[in-house]
Design a protein around this nucleic acid. Structure first.
Length: 449
RNA sequence: GUGGCUAUCGUACAGCGGUUAGUACACCGGGUUGUGGUCCCGGCGAUCUGGGUUCAACUCCCAGUAGCCACCCCA
């Protein structure tokens, strides 16, 4: 039996074509899964980021930025070497001095590193409440709401073991979605602590090892049974979903402290009218969580789809594990792109508070100078004005005024210069009147009311 | 990483084995002078890349790439 000569030559030709020198004038394309955010979309970003920041600040969180680049080991140790994020999605490279460098795939490890490094355990304000807004990088196959460079808003509380902290961060996320009119629901669970979880995991394995149960598992879950049994619980394969129905639930196996903690978290949430769903199968993919874990899911898409808008939990052992003092902590991350996606889907109208309602037009060199100064004065006095002093003909300036949808256009030309007047044109009616330049502010106030 | 669907002016869509590749919106210019939107006229502007089949490919086939969707995973 021969090979397939035809296919082979074609393949070779394709290879050759690929290696051909690219046309020098051709645009170099953007990297896959990494995009530009254009002004049109940026309106949504402004909305989301401004809302998020003011909300988070209200609860006393302070902004922190950490580097985009960190040592690979940081994520291997904290996020976990075995996790998908670290083992197959992280961008890494060896730097010239042989340092192993990673583009951050997650915010929490960097914040933990920063907390330890700067001795924040001895800051006067305790617990330490930080928030973070930035880009993360994961090498995944792009989809709607999933990019290789994406943005997240993060929140962390360091140094507070009490259930109030868990409840409060969940409340903040919940409020944020509400304010942005995104329908989100809280899914919550507790995965115990090093005292009670191992016992539970043992029971879980026992259950899944029973022949009739085990035989129904998907190939992935058979592996999970050995590598990461907790993940058996959130497999979406139908047979696995069926199999887990009778599985022991961790809530029934929490130690007293963990149960107490969890009950308190739920009580606070009830008290605050935060609607949540107890989800015994929520476990999350990162290694460092203990006790409370939660996710924010979008209300609509019940099955499939990227409906996780954000998630987080408690990680009481991570700071110590990363080389700091024992420090209880919890936090969450919410994906900005996914929030924006939801807002776009809902056609929530955008209002730009800085939208100008006045346009300053000028004609000729002398009036241009006066108009420029006038424009400055408008800014100082707090008016929202627009201009285009680069264009000299009135037609072009009015066109722009129209596009900007301003209410009034103020025209300053030779004639007005001589008379010490200014022309006020109402853009909707097209009516215009001459006013004494000195009275212009008075008139503006009257008309813009 | 796996599978399915898709790829035409800036955008949204037509189209056909042989066409000057069409329409709408956007953009630029004009309908004289210091007046926008509406209207009229004109203009710019595209077949993702490479290969194959064919007399002929935007159209059919293969590969690459990208996008969407599902899975994995997650935000």
């Amino acid at each position: 039996m021969g090979r397939k000569p035809k296919t082979k030559t074609e393949r070779q030709k394709n290879e050759e074509a690929k290696n051909k020198k690219p046309n020098e004038n051709k645009m170099i394309p953007r990297l896959r899964g990494i995009r530009d955010i254009l002004p049109d979309e940026y309106r949504y970003w402004d909305l989301v980021l401004n809302k998020a920041e003011s909300m988070i600040k209200y609860y006393g969180f302070l902004r922190t930025e950490t580097p985009v680049l960190e040592n690979v080991a940081l994520y291997e140790r904290s996020t976990g070497k075995q996790t998908d994020i670290v083992s197959k999605e992280m961008y890494t490279f060896i730097d010239r001095d042989n340092e192993r460098v990673a583009l951050r795939p997650e915010a929490t490890p960097g914040l933990v590193r920063s907390y330890i490094e700067h001795g924040m355990f001895s800051l006067p304000m305790q617990p330490v409440k930080l928030y973070w807004i930035g880009n993360l990088f994961r090498r995944e196959k792009p989809q709607a709401g999933r990019y290789r460079q994406f943005s997240q808003i993060d929140l962390e509380i360091f140094g507070e073991a009490g259930a109030v902290a868990d409840a409060q961060i969940i409340l903040i996320g919940y409020n944020l979605f509400k304010e942005l009119q995104i329908d989100a629901q809280v899914q919550i669970n507790s995965i115990g602590c090093p005292n009670c979880r191992p016992e539970y995991v043992k029971k879980l394995i026992e259950y899944y090892k029973q022949r009739p149960v085990r035989n129904k598992l998907c190939p992935d879950c058979k592996k999970r049974l050995i590598k990461n049994p907790l993940r058996l619980l959130d497999c979406k394969e139908e047979s696995c979903v069926n199999a887990r129905a009778a599985a022991p639930q961790i809530i029934d196996h929490l130690c007293e402290e963990c149960r107490d903690h969890f009950v308190k978290v739920l009580e606070y949430l009830d008290e605050l009218n935060v609607v949540y769903t107890l989800n015994p199968f929520l476990v999350r993919g990162l290694d460092y969580y203990n006790r409370t874990v939660f996710e924010f899911w979008s209300e609509d898409s019940e099955q499939g789809r990227q409906d996780a808008l954000g998630g987080g939990g408690r990680y009481d052992y991570l700071v110590e594990y990363m080389g700091g003092r024992p420090t209880p902590a919890c936090g969450w991350g919410i994906g900005a792109e996914r929030m924006i996606l939801k807002i776009k889907e809902k056609n929530i109208p955008l209002v730009d508070a800085n939208q100008p309602n006045i346009f300053v037009a000028q004609l000729g060199e002398a009036s241009k100078r006066k108009a420029m100064n006038f424009f400055e004065e408008l800014r100082r006095r707090g008016y929202k004005a627009a201009q285009n002093f680069v264009k000299d003909n009135l037609k072009a300036q009015l066109e722009l005024a129209n596009k900007l949808a301003v209410k009034l256009t103020l025209i300053l030309g030779q004639k007005e210069m001589m008379d010490g007047t200014i022309l006020i044109r109402d853009m909707e009616s097209g009516m215009q009147e001459v006013f004494d330049f000195k009275k212009v502010y008075e008139e503006l106030d009257k008309r813009l009311k």
